[in-house]
């Protein structure tokens, strides 16, 4: 069943059929929790949260910046429930909007910040190091494509077949690509690293990071706080 914004709105308004309701609930329940963002201890998590929220706001032109805090005049359960329902619909709507915001489900991010940036898809999470870009296109629930430039971290939420392509240059004619069978629970690092071939990629399981040249290994460890 395809879960889209209309269906989720229908679900929250109680207008779904039994089958649609099960479909939406299954989708909600199977969507794994986002991993906790690990930060160096001197960095403020709240500042990051605010930064991410501001980035989301700026991605959505129709939304005005939300107030930072909502105060209730007095404690009222029904108001709280209503508010969380509205926020829930808004949040899921926003996620779905972002998911479908470009053609064929592709999500593209260029990270020009000094920090990491995340693309959180249904079945896979991509974390971009600073000065990296990536474009992810899921084919179905079990496979997809990614073009990237720089260094990315790939965390599959289930076993997943990913075709990885060099995406630094605009001409794609001689770009190398590689299909990797990713295993749930493992973390992979992909990096553009020229050796013999002009557009060579390295894809390495986090557990084998130490095989990389130490200088590159250290760069990756500090970028992703491994």
């Amino acid at each position: 069943m395809k879960i889209d914004r209309t269906l989720i709105e229908k679900y929250h308004l109680g207008l779904c059929t039994e089958e649609e309701r099960f479909g939406v609930e299954d989708w909600l329940l199977n969507d794994e929790r986002e991993e906790e963002l690990l930060l160096p201890e001197e960095e403020d998590k709240l500042a990051y949260k605010e930064e991410i929220w501001n980035a989301v706001i700026s991605d959505v032109p129709s939304l005005k910046p939300a107030p930072k805090r909502i105060y209730f005049e007095y404690f009222n359960i029904s108001r709280l429930v209503a508010a969380s329902l509205i926020l829930g619909i808004l949040g899921i709507g926003l996620a779905v909007w972002k998911y479908n915001s470009t053609k064929e489900g592709t999500v593209s991010v260029i990270n020009s910040t000094p920090d990491r940036e995340k693309i959180d898809m249904q079945d896979i999470t991509i974390t971009l190091a600073s000065q990296s870009k990536a474009s992810v296109t899921p084919k179905d629930r079990n496979s997809g494509n990614i073009d990237f430039c720089g260094i990315i971290m790939i965390s599959p939420k289930k076993d997943f077949e990913l075709t990885i392509k060099e995406g630094c240059s605009s001409s794609q004619s001689n770009a190398t690509n590689e299909t990797i069978h990713l295993k749930k629970g493992n973390t992979y690092i992909a990096v553009n690293y020229r050796y013999n071939l002009e557009k060579e990629l390295i894809v390495v399981n986090e557990r084998n990071l130490i095989n990389l040249p130490p200088i590159l290994q250290r760069e990756i460890m500090s970028q992703f706080n491994i």
Binding site: Y193, Y195, N196, E200, N211
Partner: peptide, 8 residues
């Protein structure tokens, strides 16, 4: 080996 990925 032809590419870095083969090396290890």
């Amino acid at each position: 080996f032809t590419r870095w990925d083969d090396h290890w």
